[in-house]
């Protein structure tokens, strides 16, 4: 993903620290943060409050990517999942540190801070969250 560094940098709070937000009217939590709540719309304007998420959740669905984009080719095959976070929002992320045949719907997972991709061999390195099995 050859792009300006600022485009990545401005999303660091979300990708590094799981900063989402919460509607002050209906308490729904959003990740990534939204400008307004899609349920309360105008009633939520000015009432969206930052909130930190725990980075824990459950696998809703998944796939094993065998044919990956150029930047991910070295990692194939790798699992990608939709994870429902404890606070409510769903996100898409890679599952790591887990044999492919152990990835299951309903599996409890927690976030881990990892390198996601890199602009060539000398370009910027992009970090963010991946998920691994929750420790019991």
């Amino acid at each position: 993903m050859k792009e300006g560094v600022a485009r990545f940098w401005r999303e660091i709070p979300q990708r590094y620290n799981f900063i989402g937000n919460k509607c002050g009217t209906c308490d729904t939590v959003f990740f990534p943060p939204r400008e307004s709540c899609p349920y309360c719309r105008r009633k939520s304007i000015g009432k969206m409050k930052e909130t930190k998420l725990a980075g824990k959740g459950e696998v809703v669905t998944y796939t094993i990517i065998h044919v990956g984009p150029e930047d991910f080719e070295e990692q194939t095959p790798y699992p990608i999942a939709i994870i429902k976070l404890e606070e409510g929002p769903q996100i898409t992320a890679q599952i790591v540190d887990c044999p492919l045949d152990e990835v299951k719907i309903g599996m409890k997972v927690e976030s881990t801070f990892r390198k996601i991709q890199q602009d060539g061999h000398t370009g910027a390195i992009y970090y963010g969250y991946k998920f691994k099995k929750q420790r019991q």
Binding site: G68, I82, T92, I116, Q117
Partner: peptide, 13 residues
């Protein structure tokens, strides 16, 4: 896409 999801991958999910 940033996290490595491809278009076939999304339909696969």
């Amino acid at each position: 896409a940033f996290f490595g999801a491809t278009f076939p991958g999304i339909y696969a999910m």
